[in-house]
Amino acid sequence: MTAKQDVNPQQATSPPDDERKARAGSPLERVIELAIKASGFSAILFVFAIFFFVFSTASEFIFEKLDFVEFLTSPEWYPTSLSNKRYGTLALLAGTVSVTGLAMLIAVPLGLGSALFISEFTSGSMKEGLKIVIELLAAIPSVVWGFIGLAVMNPLIIEVFDAPIGLNVLNGGIILGLMSVPIIVSIGEDALKAVPDSYREASLALGATRWQTARQVLFPAARSGLLAAVLLGVGRAIGETMAVLMATGHAVQIPGSPLDSVRTLTATIAAELGETAAGSDHYQALFAVGVLLFLLTFGVNLAADLIVRGRSSR
């Protein structure tokens, strides 16, 4: 009650007694309030539960058998070797980082550009049509993207770049980039739409062009929303499995150029987990890879969060 009054002083005009009576008289309202609160907290619960599950499955291996130096710095991933099992994830990590990085080089300018265009430079049926088409793009299943990578991009890359094989970082990066674009566009467009019109009017009134308004007023004002859009795009790219499994060539090596094949962390888990005996070293090592992936996305999110906060406090 009091908290509500603090936040929203207009409410104080209604008689507080009546309000209290109305609330006490409706147990349903309290149930609904609780349910909403619970669903709010459930997100936190799920995140911790998932992390706990992944970490506890891998914990025996992590604490007793894992050589951390090898795990993080060796590119040698030999989980099924008969003579010399090695669990180095550096090459897989390099695979994930290179494909995601290239995907973002493609998706961020394309995504933010089209968000800006849809939000500021077009209107009416064109705007609605574009939004619908981009939402459709988001609905394409990842296995279909993977198939495009395999069947369309592979021969194309061989042809254009004279590469020995078209399943590589470039292929995976383009596919993942295109998959991330719809997310960046729809969230970026929402962020730009949320900037009050008074900002635009003030800027234009001062004689700024629409481009100057977009670059110097709208982008800074919508900064945190746009960053969130990019981050969700990064998250999609890092976490994507099926499409990269099919498009990157699935080869354990540190790429020297965009035309080298790689294997990502997610693809390794997807390809190998189904066949390993539950509880074996290999099984637990794959969960340790899951922990690594979790820490990676957590790190990206945290870093971006700190950047947003650091900027806004200035």
Binding site: P75, S83, N84, L167, H250, A251
Partner: peptide, 14 residues
């Protein structure tokens, strides 16, 4: 061979 391993960097298909 019994104790041999593959060279890394092969394209491993499904």
């Amino acid at each position: 061979g019994e104790t041999g391993d593959f060279k890394l960097g092969s394209r491993d298909m499904q």
